[in-house]
Every structure is written in structure tokens, then in C-alpha cells.
């Protein structure tokens, strides 16, 4: 097991490094004019521009820049923002922005999991009857219609009817409701539809038929056999979703003017704030990879039949 964990950590590190390098190289493909504000670009002479770029360190060879970046990260220094918040340490920016996204994300994740599981159980329990059809209609609507449209309509209509402020105010809890609800809509649909699917699959298994013929009550079978086995494949995704809540939601944070992480990345890319983009990508990649890893471990923990290390060996044996 420990060998497996070490191997996975090394693999994950490799993935993160490749992701960072890929984004790093993509960033260098952007035109250098993006590093200036419009006025600066017009007012500067060619020499001033190149001096400015040299000062930023952008004219150095990519390898040197990468080395500098990784060296900084190892020292715990994330660098400073270039254009979005000139000269401000990135850790300060993050410390200010992360809490918003994190709290909204956690609240919505809690709602998504509880309501989503409830929906899934209800749909599986009443398969092919109206709760199932109603649930399916909801899931299809949420997944098929571009989210911008219904999120915007919810904002306009609900704030209009309830006479709430349109945007988020930190000191007015009533304005926290809609962003959290909006954030949860897709999550509820996701957990609901997958839990239903896994429960229905599980119900058709032979051991369930056996349990039923033994005379166990439907309720007991559902709670102790179907649900417990159906939850296992979903557990795998909980950690990654939990960790990535700090990324925030671009659409929701921007329509409700929440000063969180959601818009930061887009803004940083638009302003060509390479340092900031780089750090954000690094953080998201680390969290994503770590989340998948923890998810695998968690799944093995929840379902003792899954043995990660052995599964790996078997695969290798097959490959030979």
C-alpha cells in the first residue's frame, strides 16, 4: 500500500509539472503588447517598452523563467502580481479572495450533496413514476440549457419578486441566498442523476433479488444494500469537488459581483498577468490531482473490496 501511495504521489507530481509547463508555454505565445495598459503602450517608445519587458523578466529564455518560478514556489514565495494588482504579493491577493469562493463553495457543496442524494434516492425509489420523471426533467433542464441563461433569469426574477438587492453585499445575509442556491443547481442534478443510475444498476443485481426472496423488507434492502453500494463510486469524486470549491464560479461570481476567485483567472489572463495565471493554474492542478488521489484512497476505504495496490499489480500482469 505505501509503495502504491509513493508511486501515485510521484506520478501526480509529474502531471502537475507538465500542466504548469504547458500553460507556461501557452502564455509565452501571447502578444507582448498585452503586458501594457493601453495608454502606456501608446506613450512608450520601442526602447522603453523593451526595457519594461526586460524588467518584468519576460524577455529571458523560457527555461530561466520556469526555473525562477519553481524555485520561488519551493521557497513558499508565490511571486507578485504584474498587471492586475501591480506589485502586490499573490499570496495577499489569494488570502483576500479565496474565503469568498470557499465559503460559498462549501455551503453549496453541502446543499448539493444532501439534496442531490435525496433526489437520487427518490428517483430510484419511484423509478418510472412521476417523481422520477420530474427529477429527470430538472436534470435535463439544468444540464442542457446554457447555465448563463437560467442563472441570469433566476437572479432577475427572484430578486424582483422578493425585493432583494440584485448583487451580493457582505453585510446582508439575504443576498447570500441566491448565489448559494445557483451554485448548487448543477451539483444537485449531478449527484441526483448518478446516484439514481447506480442505485438502479445495483437493484438489478442477483444478490438483491436473493435478499428480496429471503423476505427482507424493501426499506431494509434499499438502506443497507442498494444505497451503500451505490454511494461507493460517487465517494471518489467528493474530495476533488471539495478542494476545487476554492476556484469559485465565474458566471455566478460575476453576475452577483462577488469578489471571489471566479473572475480572477479570466481577468488575469486578459491582463496577461503571467505570474498570477501561473500560480492559479499551479494551485488548481495541485488541488485537482490531489483530489483524485484522495478520492481513490477514500473509495478503497469505503469499500474494502477495492484494493488499490493489488489492482495495480493485476493490471501490470495483464500488460505483459
Amino acid at each position: 500500500m505505501s509503495r502504491y501511495i509513493v508511486k501515485r504521489i510521484l506520478q501526480s507530481l509529474l502531471t502537475v509539472v507538465i500542466v504548469v509547463i504547458a500553460v507556461f508555454l501557452l502564455l509565452r505565445l501571447m502578444p507582448t503588447s498585452g503586458y501594457f495598459t493601453r495608454d502606456d503602450y501608446i506613450n512608450m517608445t520601442e526602447e522603453m517598452r523593451s526595457a519594461y519587458l526586460r524588467n518584468l523578466g519576460i524577455t529571458d529564455p523560457a527555461v530561466i523563467q520556469l526555473q525562477r518560478f519553481f524555485a520561488g514556489v519551493f521557497r513558499g514565495d508565490l511571486g507578485r502580481s504584474i498587471t492586475v494588482y501591480p506589485k502586490l504579493p499573490i499570496s495577499t491577493i489569494l488570502a483576500e479572495k479565496v474565503p469568498y469562493s470557499l465559503w460559498f463553495g462549501l455551503a453549496s457543496m453541502f446543499i448539493s450533496v444532501t439534496l442531490g442524494f435525496g433526489l437520487g434516492i427518490l428517483m430510484a425509489r419511484f423509478k418510472d413514476r412521476w417523481p422520477d420523471h420530474l427529477g429527470t426533467a430538472y436534470v435535463v433542464a439544468v444540464r442542457a440549457i446554457p447555465s448563463l441563461i437560467y442563472l441570469f433569469l433566476i437572479q432577475i426574477w427572484v430578486t424582483g419578486i422578493m425585493r432583494w438587492p440584485m448583487v451580493f453585499y457582505e453585510d446582508r445575509p439575504v443576498t447570500w441566498i441566491l448565489p448559494v442556491v445557483s451554485l448548487s443547481l448543477t451539483g444537485i442534478a449531478w449527484y441526483g442523476i448518478w446516484l439514481r443510475r447506480f442505485m438502479v444498476d445495483e437493484e438489478n443485481r442477483d444478490y438483491i433479488k436473493f435478499a428480496r426472496s429471503k423476505g427482507l423488507s424493501q426499506k431494509y434492502i434499499m438502506r443497507h444494500h442498494v444505497l451503500r453500494n451505490a454511494v461507493v463510486p460517487l465517494v471518489q469524486y467528493l474530495p476533488v469537488q471539495l478542494l476545487l470549491t476554492i476556484a469559485g464560479s465565474l458566471i455566478i461570481e460575476s453576475i452577483y459581483s462577488i469578489p471571489g476567485m471566479g473572475g480572477l483567472l479570466v481577468y488575469a489572463i486578459k491582463q496577461q498577468d503571467n505570474n498570477l495565471v501561473q500560480v492559479l493554474v499551479l494551485i488548481y492542478a495541485v488541488l485537482g490531482v490531489a483530489g483524485v488521489f484522495v478520492g481513490d484512497l477514500l473509495m478503497a476505504f469505503v469499500d474494502p473490496r477495492i484494493r488499490l495496490a493489488e489492482k495495480k499489480k493485476k493490471k501490470e500482469a495483464l500488460r505483459v
Partner: peptide, 22 residues
Amino acid sequence: TEIYNVITNIPSTVYLILLSYI
């Protein structure tokens, strides 16, 4: 599998925005 890991770990917004800019 490594290509898959790399691609799915770059947030889709980053990728879309970067390419649209380039």
C-alpha cells in the same frame, strides 16, 4: 493516460481563454 491527466487537469476556462487570446 498521462496526456489525459494533463488535459483534464488544466481548467477548461484557462484553456479556452488562453487559446481565444492567442
